[in-house]
Design a protein around this nucleic acid. Structure first.
Lengths: 187, 187
DNA sequence: GATGTTAAACTAACAGTGTTAGATTTAGGA
DNA sequence: TCCTAAATCTAACACTGTTAGTTTAACATC
């Protein structure tokens, strides 16, 4: 027997494998032993690269959420920037339904939160909203996206209760209303 | 020793004890063995009154959520009815922070959902929204309330990151914008 | 190349979880 | 008093996250 597939364990590989398990079995199906099996390693070995399961989950959440940063270069009206951010964030969450209940409870790290917020704050410089209100607006949208994703795929891989098209329309109606409400007050 | 405090186990007592544990130790602190201890009973005995932990949680969620039904008699503009519902719902969730992550993931039963929705649907009869849009509106508000509560007390009893007043203002700003957005389109 | 050092993996175990089968106690009616 | 049926208990199973201690593997130094 040749010594095959023993490429070294790394933080990146662990996070990827965790994401794979979440995508296949859902949040309830993630265990350190299963994660070890996936990586051809004993569960205890993981603790040389990750402090504990909680910290691992936090890293997965950040790795997924960071994809939702908007491109600061593209200059749009702030309402469209917010809309694009929300839609993009939702698509990312839907691509990893097993992560949704985790982001709901754990919330993003302060560092990742800043990276997400900064371009959105910049896009809202021309509004009448003061800095605190700007945060309220951004967080309201994030909360709506997460809450909506929870309703759609919250208990994945249990079956959802309505067809995809229903959730798509609901999302559009709700998000548009929320942003229009902010526009009405702060534009 | 006299045979004291052996009043019979009942569904109601079990749900109340579960709620007590959730309020004291959070969702992560709820175990069947702890629940048994609270009721001076062995964990296995609970399974004669409740099918399993999941079903028990579902009952707790319904018991808490049902308190958010609005009084159909009080006639207000539909925007105010929605606002009152959201505020009331939020207060109920904040009174039981340990339940919040559970309602987020499990969502209310169909029966309880109907009881909550019916008076709200009635309040919106005079709007331009069609039946499906009415559902979108109601569910958008519920999703916002739950998402916001998650952000505030989602990982309770871990400490929150901001003072209470911050969350109160954020809630008001977000909710008002959402309802104004709907008003603008459907009033 | 042999040796020593250090990191990374392993084995084994602990305390805890939800849940079930089967024995035992309790309560109520004939 | 006896029987029946419901409620509770005991014991166990298969899991979970995590740690301590040991062994293996890789790599720098002599």
């Amino acid at each position: 027997m040749s010594k095959l597939q023993k490429e070294p364990l790394s933080n990146k590989r662990i996070i990827q494998a965790t994401l794979d398990i979440l995508d296949s079995y859902g949040a309830a199906g993630l265990s350190m032993r299963r994660l070890g099996t996936t990586l051809n390693v004993e569960a205890a070995s993981l603790y040389h690269h990750v402090p504990n399961k909680e910290a691992l989950i936090q890293q997965v959440i950040d790795a997924v959420s960071i994809k939702a940063v908007v491109d600061e270069a593209t200059v749009l009206p702030w309402t469209q920037t917010l809309h694009a951010f929300a839609t993009n964030f939702r698509n990312i969450l839907k691509a990893h339904p097993g992560v949704v209940p985790l982001v709901a409870i754990h919330s993003v790290s302060e560092e990742t939160g800043a990276k997400l917020a900064i371009p959105l704050i910049a896009a809202m410089e021309e509004t009448k909203a003061n800095p605190e209100e700007v945060l309220f607006i951004i967080q309201s949208i994030a909360v709506f996206v997460i809450g909506h994703a929870l309703a759609e795929v919250g208990n994945w891989p249990e079956r959802p209760t309505a067809p995809t098209e229903y959730y798509n329309q609901w999302f559009e109606v709700g998000l548009t209303a929320l942003i229009n409400g902010f526009k009405q007050q702060y534009d």
